[in-house]
Amino acid sequence: MAVPVIELSGVSRRYEEGPAALDEVSLTVAPGESVAVLGPSGSGKSTLLNLIAGLYRPTAGTVTVDGTRVDTLGEAGSARFRRAKIGMVFQFFHLLDDLTVADNVLLPAEMAGVGRAAARRRAAELLDVLGIARHARAYPGRLSGGERQRVAVARALMNRPPLLLADEPTGALDSASGEDVRELLNDLHADGQTIVTVTHDLSLARACATRTVEIADGRVVADRPTPRTTPATSATSTAVAR
Rank of each mutant, 00 (worst) to 15 (best):
S175V: 08
L184E: 09
G146Y: 07
L173A: 00
A216L: 06
G131R: 13
I215T: 08
N186H: 15
A176M: 03
G171L: 08
P108I: 00
A152T: 12
T212K: 12
A152I: 08
A232P: 10
A133Q: 14
A118W: 10
G141T: 14
E168C: 11
A102P: 06
H189W: 08
T212I: 00
G131K: 09
A156E: 06
P140S: 15
L163N: 09
D167F: 12
L127Q: 05
R224D: 14
A124Y: 09
D201K: 02
R120M: 04
G141P: 06
S175T: 13
V213R: 01
A190H: 12
A172F: 11
D217I: 06
N159T: 00
T233W: 04
A176G: 07
L184D: 13
P161S: 05
T236M: 05
P108K: 07
L165R: 15
A124G: 11
A209N: 11
L127D: 12
R150K: 11
D103W: 01
A176V: 12
P169E: 10
Y139E: 04
R142D: 15
G178I: 09
V198D: 05
A156F: 05
Q149H: 12
M111F: 08
R120G: 06
A207L: 10
V221Q: 06
E183G: 02
G192A: 13
R219K: 14
V221K: 13
A124M: 08
Q149L: 05
P231H: 10
Q193R: 14
M158N: 01
G178A: 10
R134C: 13
V129C: 14
A216Y: 03
A166Q: 10
L126F: 01
I195P: 09
A156H: 04
T210D: 13
L188W: 14
A205E: 07
T100D: 04
R219A: 15
H200D: 09
V213H: 11
R122D: 00
A102L: 11
A118G: 01
R121A: 03
T226M: 07
T199P: 02
G192E: 03
R206T: 05
R122T: 03
R120I: 06
E110C: 03
G192I: 04
R116K: 11
D103G: 08
A207V: 04
I195L: 15
L157E: 02
T210G: 14
A232V: 02
R122C: 05
R224C: 07
A176I: 11
D191H: 05
S177G: 12
A156V: 02
P169K: 04
A172H: 00
R120K: 15
I132A: 15
Y139L: 14
R137T: 06
T233S: 13
T210N: 09
H200G: 04
Q193C: 01
L202F: 01
A222Q: 05
R219E: 00
D201G: 00
P169Q: 08
A172R: 08
T236K: 10
R134S: 15
